[in-house]
Amino acid sequence: MSNESFALTEAVYYILLSLRSPLHGYGIMQRVEQLSAGRVRLAAGTLYGALESLLKKGWIQALPEEMGSRKKEYVITAAGTQAAENELARLRELVANGEKILGRDAG
């Protein structure tokens, strides 16, 4: 089984979505919180660890630091976009099956 067929963690999935445009660490936290309507709050240590893993995997990249700015910005790569799309397909399957089985009970 290849690595890519594993489910992404919620944190990783939302980080990838948030990085369609470049953001620094705090920006990612805010964007993810906003995307999930306040439900997902990434803590600094968890986010830092996830960013390091994503960089290593090549799913995101760090932008060259601008002069005078201390904050590092990140952006999603083509491989990262592919990973997020794979996850979306997996989530669609989960939702479709959930609705088919649980939705029937409810309806």
Partner: peptide, 16 residues
């Protein structure tokens, strides 16, 4: 300024 945690998932807690 909002809640403050260093870890927000089980994996990073396990790591610590």
């Amino acid at each position: 300024d909002g809640g403050f945690d260093l870890y927000s998932d089980i994996d990073s807690r396990l790591n610590q």
